[in-house]
Design a binder for these strands. Structure first.
Lengths: 144, 144
DNA sequence: TCGCGATGGTTGCTTTGGTAACTGTCGATT
DNA sequence: AATCGACAGTTACCAAAGCAACCATCGCGA
């Protein structure tokens, strides 16, 4: 009978690593602004693209529309984001960050990039191959 | 102001990939036996080590004790696992798989290994570097 | 041997995520 | 113009996960 060592099993290792990294990453925005991961993703996406609909945010950040909906509301209550009903299509709404939202983003980004750079630096020469392999796997496991 | 592209951001990519892989992996044990991830982990750990306590399972599979507790109960109700009170220490219990449990495991493992092999094969020469980088990151982000 | 902090495991409460149903609007077809 | 399927977004409901309180037992020291 074939045997499987869980600690060497790829899906398990990816899951574990991903949680650990996310966990650590919380320290980047945790202490100052208390964000959840979905909120962070909405913030990052809106900052990246300016103004967009909830649907588009979900697509870009790989989040289900309910997750987006709740994260948007949370950011709105925090006054980091405003909604504006689209004139062309009244089903959708244009979302954009407020000045405080942009400012918070501006504070977080350098720390986020430093966090990532720290990991890549620790990997040294292994960083480049990792990113390449990651890209290949993303191709093999598309979003939907 | 520095900018961050979410789709290239390492924590995000890891998270996304990990979910996608887990999602796909469900197809390995999903159709035949309807297992959750924690249940699968308990099953795999017990099959790997024979008889052990819930605490030990949690340690080996990186799961919180409540997660283990509930997964154990689910497997027990499925008659894939039995408890036996330890004589030396009556706080803990010795857990082990039943014959049906072992059999289910035996059916799943080859498919799980094939799943993993498929990914590694698709990576081709990138597989080896990926595993090395993974090991480095695991070191940098220890379980606790 | 009594007491007490530590430990294995379970349970209850709260938060979070996903699914499905719903609301309102759109565009196309009649 | 009326109808109907598709679609954006919200909400209600349910499953899963974490935290903290809890229970029983252990082992140690007074």
């Amino acid at each position: 009978m074939s045997k499987l060592a869980l600690e060497h099993f790829l899906p398990y290792r990816l899951n574990r690593l991903s949680s650990a990294v996310s966990q650590q990453f919380r320290a980047v925005y945790g202490p100052h602004h208390d964000l959840t991961v979905p909120e962070w993703r909405v913030l990052a996406t809106l900052a990246q693209f300016g103004t967009m609909t909830a649907k588009a945010i979900g697509k870009h950040s790989s989040m289900h529309k309910t997750k987006v909906s709740r994260a948007v509301r949370a950011l709105e209550e925090r006054r980091w984001l405003t909604r504006r009903e689209s004139e062309q299509d009244r089903r959708e709404e244009s979302l954009s960050l407020t000045a405080p939202g942009l400012q918070a983003y501006g504070e977080i980004v350098p720390r986020a990039l430093a966090f990532e750079a720290g990991i890549l630096a620790a990997l040294g020469p292994h960083a480049e191959p990792l990113l390449r392999a990651l890209a290949l796997m993303e191709e093999r496991f598309p979003v939907d």
